[in-house]
Computed example of a mutant assay.
Amino acid sequence: MTTETITAAASGTWTLGDMTVHRIGFGAMRIPQDGPALQADSVPGDRARATAVLRRALELGVNHIDTAAFYFSPLRSANELINSALGGRYPDDLVIATKVGPRRDASGEWAEHARTPRELRGQVEENLRQLGRDHLDLVNLRVVGTDSVAERFGALAELRDAGLIRHLGVSNVTPEQLAQARAVAPVVCVQNGYGIGTGVGQDAFVRFCGEQGIAFVPFYSIAAAGGEHGAGPEESEELAAVARAHGASTAQVRLAWTLHRGPHVLAIPGTGNPRHLDDNVAAGALRLTEDDLARLDALHHAQA
Rank of each mutant, 00 (worst) to 15 (best):
M1C: 07
M1D: 13
T7V: 05
T13C: 03
T13Q: 11
W14M: 00
T15M: 10
L16C: 05
T20G: 00
H22E: 08
G25R: 12
G25I: 04
I31T: 01
Q33Y: 07
Q39N: 12
A40Y: 08
V43W: 00
V43Y: 00
G45L: 05
A50R: 03
T51C: 11
T51D: 13
L54V: 06
L54D: 10
L54M: 02
L54K: 07
R55N: 14
R56C: 08
R56Q: 13
A57L: 09
G61H: 03
H64A: 02
I65Q: 02
D66K: 07
L75P: 12
S77W: 02
N79D: 15
E80Q: 14
L81Q: 01
L81R: 08
L86I: 12
G87C: 07
Y90H: 12
P91V: 10
P91L: 11
P91I: 13
D93F: 05
D93Q: 03
I96P: 12
A97S: 09
G101K: 07
P102S: 07
R103E: 12
R104V: 04
D105C: 03
S107H: 15
S107Y: 15
E109M: 15
E109H: 15
W110K: 14
A111E: 12
A114M: 10
E119T: 05
E119W: 08
G122R: 01
V124N: 05
E126D: 15
H135W: 13
D137F: 04
V139A: 13
V139I: 10
N140K: 05
V144M: 14
S148G: 14
V149F: 04
E151K: 02
G154T: 04
L156M: 01
R166G: 14
R166T: 14
R166D: 15
G169N: 04
V170Y: 00
S171V: 01
P175V: 00
A179C: 09
Q180V: 05
A181K: 04
R182L: 12
R182H: 11
G193Y: 04
Y194I: 04
I196L: 01
I196C: 03
G197I: 08
T198G: 03
G199A: 03
A204K: 05
V206M: 10
V206K: 09
V206G: 00
I214F: 06
I214D: 01
F216S: 08
P218E: 11
F219C: 07
I222K: 09
A223P: 12
A225Q: 15
G226W: 03
G227Y: 00
H229R: 11
G230Q: 00
E235Y: 15
A240S: 13
V242T: 03
G247K: 06
A251C: 02
R254G: 11
L255S: 06
T258Y: 09
L259R: 03
H260Y: 02
P263T: 10
V265M: 10
P269D: 04
P269I: 14
P269F: 10
L277Y: 09
D278N: 11
N280A: 11
V281S: 04
A283Q: 06
R287W: 00
R287Y: 11
R287A: 12
R295P: 00
D297R: 11
L299G: 02
L299D: 08
L299W: 10
